[in-house]
């Protein structure tokens, strides 16, 4: 009994701390969902109500169909999917090649690659702007996707080398002896083994492209082609702010992101922690 009490007391502080943090962490999500289903008069007149008196989907209808957010979501989807596919198609062979063919230089190479993480996006934005004007790529999906590859590929190669390193060489040698070419060995022997890593990298790439703001702001300038993040920004810049619509749009953008993050968080943590085991 005393032991139970002692345990209770020693856990009180961490539980209280975690509970406070949990409320702080989750409140904005709760609040934007709640605000998105409150009616406009209620948003204005009763800012403290914790439950909608008359729940409504009006804001969703308005933002998706009248303000064109559905089109912008579609743009985001096209841009992010293209970025993801290109990134994986280029990074997976590169990561495999580094691990299998250049194990020694490869380590230095990936270090060099990841150090490009230091390049400020705003620094790259100047030459990109100039290049896009001269190649006629301003205001195109393709131009934006190219710009996204600059940060997605180094990260994906870095992440994927860690995964391909775990593939046992014996399995590949067996396939190789059986007459599979190098590329087939890579594609149908090594890659299926690291599929979870490929999926995690793909999701991470997708979210980053989906959420990117600066390049999209600079390179896309008509609302029909804008990805959702920039379209929302222009919505937030209007004279009279339509907070209900802004909250509904925020919910539409954030919920898929949360689901994906919960799915991949263990892979992201594993990357940094792995080194600390050694």
């Amino acid at each position: 009994m005393t032991r139970l009490l002692m345990n209770l007391r020693s856990y009180t502080v961490p539980y209280a701390f975690l509970s406070v943090l949990a409320v702080l962490a989750a409140f904005p999500l709760f609040w934007i969902v709640l605000s998105s289903i409150k009616s406009t008069p209620e948003l204005a007149n009763d800012p403290l109500s914790l439950w909608p008196s008359q729940p409504t989907l009006d804001h969703y209808r308005r933002v998706l169909f009248e303000l064109g957010a559905l089109t912008n979501l579609g743009n985001s989807l096209v841009i992010s999917l293209s970025t993801t596919l290109l990134t994986i198609a280029i990074s997976a062979p590169a990561a495999y090649g580094i691990v299998r063919f250049y194990p020694r230089v490869g380590q230095r190479l990936t270090q060099l690659l990841i150090s490009t993480y230091m390049f400020p996006p705003i620094l790259l934005a100047v030459p990109y702007t100039i290049i896009m004007i001269s190649l006629g790529l301003s205001n195109t999906y393709f131009g934006l996707v190219l710009a996204y590859l600059s940060f997605s590929i180094p990260y994906a190669v870095w992440m994927l080398t860690a995964f391909y390193q775990t593939v046992p060489l014996e399995i590949e040698e067996a396939a190789y002896v059986d007459g599979a070419g190098r590329f087939r060995t890579f594609l149908s022997v090594a890659s299926p083994i690291v599929l979870p890593g490929l999926v995690a990298t793909a999701i991470y790439t997708f979210i980053n492209a989906f959420n990117e703001f600066l390049f999209a702001l600079l390179f896309i300038n008509t609302s029909e082609r804008m990805p959702i993040a920039v379209a929302l920004y222009s919505l937030g810049g209007s004279e009279v702010l339509d907070w209900g619509a802004m909250m509904a749009a925020s919910v539409v953008v954030v919920v898929p992101s949360i689901v994906f993050f919960l799915f991949i968080q263990k892979y992201i943590a594993a990357g940094l922690a792995e080194g600390s085991v050694k």
């Binding site: 934007i32 703001f213 925020s250 949360i258 993050f261 919960l262």
Partner: peptide
Amino acid sequence: LVIPWAFPAIVIAFSWRW
């Protein structure tokens, strides 16, 4: 506790500004 990390910048800005 991991929820905030999934917020895109635009949604961080909108939710807190609201």
